[in-house]
């Protein structure tokens, strides 16, 4: 009896998690603009999406920022995790503290603090020379995304380093390897699954971010979530359904890749 109650309850929660997404995907194929009644199957909204040059441009912006931010954050975060694990250095406690603060602080707080920084830099640049243009846009968005992704890479990589035998690093040095050689030949290969997981996590975080981007993107540079946000605020449009469906499928693919990597990692 208990077993069936359990299964029923779990099914209900899964339904709660998936039902809205399924509805959204189904209606992305509905041949009607406003009504939620079924008016037949259509690819119309996907076609309209394909013709929407602005949307494609911001989607490309998002992917560009996502890839660049994830890559930079992965490099920075992996080096940072190795540094935090392996070395004693001045400011180590500060770095640990800041990583914690960045993970815990709400996105909105991070967004406005970065905006304050960038605007100040902009003012200072204008004071130095009028030709110095430091207005908000690609660079400020990229720097911000790297900043909020890096702590997550650090945490992911650190949890893996903590799992492996400290003697491995000592063994490498004992056999004559320099710090860099040890990093390249021993530490990095062993960290690889965590590094890849960190990259994927960063990429999704970057693709998903609305709040921080809204603060630091400026009027001339837009990312996909921001565009969706403004479209959604105007109301329900099947075009957004189609876009959401595509994004959901893309997420599925990424999760599948991540799972496959994790599995390999375990073996």
């Amino acid at each position: 009896m208990q077993r069936y109650v359990n299964i029923a309850y779990a099914t209900l929660v899964y339904a709660f998690l998936y039902f809205p997404i399924v509805i959204l995907i189904v209606f992305s194929f509905n041949d009607s603009t406003y009504s939620l009644a079924w008016h037949g199957f259509t690819w119309r909204w996907y076609e309209k999406l394909a013709d929407n040059d602005v949307l494609i441009e911001v989607a490309l912006n998002s992917v560009t920022i996502g890839v660049l931010a994830a890559s930079l954050a992965t490099v920075l975060g992996t080096l940072g995790a190795v540094a935090l694990y392996h070395y004693d250095f001045l400011g180590k406690r500060l770095v640990n503290g800041l990583v914690f603060v960045l993970i815990m602080s709400p996105e909105i707080v991070m967004g406005l603090s970065l905006l304050t920084l960038f605007v100040t830099v902009q003012k200072v640049a204008a004071l130095i020379s009028e030709s110095l243009d430091a207005s908000l846009g690609f660079i400020s968005v990229l720097l911000s995304h790297v900043t909020f992704c890096t702590p997550f890479v650090i945490v992911t990589v650190l949890s893996r380093i903590n799992g492996f035998d400290r003697h491995l690093i000592e063994a490498a040095k004992d056999l004559g390897a320099s710090e860099f050689y040890t990093f390249r030949k021993v530490i990095l290969p062993l960290l690889m699954p965590a590094v890849v997981a960190g990259w994927l996590l960063s990429f999704t975080l970057s693709m998903d971010d609305v709040i921080i981007t809204q603060f630091v993107s400026g009027p001339d540079y837009e990312l996909l979530p921001l565009r969706i946000y403004s479209m959604v605020k105007r109301g329900i449009t099947p075009e957004v359904n189609a876009l959401s469906a595509i994004m959901f499928v893309a997420t599925l693919v990424i999760v599948a890749i991540a799972q496959a990597l994790l599995k390999e990692n375990k073996q």
């Binding site: 035998d165 003697h167 491995l168 000592e170 063994a171 056999l175 021993v186 290969p189 062993l190």
Partner: peptide, 12 residues
């Protein structure tokens, strides 16, 4: 050179 208690062979 050292032979470690855990051997510390590079698993990869």
């Amino acid at each position: 050179n050292t032979v470690f208690q855990s051997y510390a062979l590079f698993p990869h």
